[in-house]
């Protein structure tokens, strides 16, 4: 399949995720084009992570559809979504605590390549993410920011064509945040991305188009500047942040 910039890679139609009476995600129509870099923002509890989990198969939506590259992935298992070549990082760090940095990355690369190629990719990624000093360390012994960083490494090493990141810069230092933004720009040269983020500075560093979530729905979809200028958006979100 040839890829073109204008292709739709992620689409949701009338996506709903209700927990009892809580409408965490309600009637969301969302479209992402190939090579696009999209930020999802919104106040706490707006439903960003729930939306994200519906895309990645961690939750089965109550109603609506999820299409990835035109394939119906509604209610698919996480491994099925990942097996399409989608790289995923969750909000809560998910890493292999008992394994070393090297091994963490290897498990990711080995999903797609033979051992030799996987090890070469691991070395490349270690260098690229400057993890050389800690590559033999167990993940359980690393600081929070480093673990986040390794998780990003697990995503990159698999060379995904679509990358979904839930709060990649959470808990990182200023410098780490800056490098994450750089990395995301780099990933974006070859892949489409959806990035959920709270950090306004971070979003200004990377953003093109931003989707603003509010109470389970999409309130606005525009550039960061336009959103900052909008009165309603400022009320729900920016008023108490920026």
């Amino acid at each position: 399949m040839t890829r073109q910039r204008g292709d739709v890679v992620v689409e949701t139609r009338g996506l709903c995720m209700h927990f009892g009476g809580v409408r965490a995600v309600d009637q969301v129509d969302f479209t992402l084009f190939d090579r696009e870099l999209r930020c999802l923002i919104g106040p706490n509890g707006a439903g960003k992570s729930t939306f994200f989990k519906c895309l990645t198969g961690q939750l089965t939506p109550t109603a609506g559809e999820v299409l990835i590259r035109g394939q119906d992935m509604t209610g698919a298992e996480p491994f099925e979504v990942a097996s399409l070549g989608v790289g995923i990082k969750t909000q809560v760090p998910n890493v292999f605590d008992g394994l070393t940095v090297d091994e963490n990355l290897w498990v990711s690369a080995r999903r797609w390549h033979d051992d030799r190629r996987a090890r070469a990719l691991v070395s490349e990624t270690i260098e690229r993410l400057r993890l050389g000093d800690i590559r033999k360390m167990q993940l359980g012994r690393l600081a929070h920011g480093q673990r986040q960083w390794v998780e990003l490494g697990m995503v990159v090493v698999a060379e995904p064509w679509l990358v979904l990141l839930d709060e990649p810069a959470a808990g990182m230092t200023h410098e780490e945040t800056f490098r994450t933004a750089e990395l995301i720009e780099e990933i974006n040269k070859t892949s489409a991305l959806i990035v959920v983020e709270h950090d306004m500075q971070f979003i200004r560093l990377i953003s093109r188009k931003v989707t603003l979530f509010h109470e389970g729905g999409i309130l606005m979809e525009d550039t960061m500047d336009a959103i900052s200028a909008d009165k309603r958006a400022r009320e729900v979100y920016l008023g108490h942040r920026a």
Partner: peptide
């Protein structure tokens, strides 16, 4: 979950 998110 991590293993599944890597496609296993």
């Amino acid at each position: 979950l991590r293993a599944e998110l890597l496609g296993y």
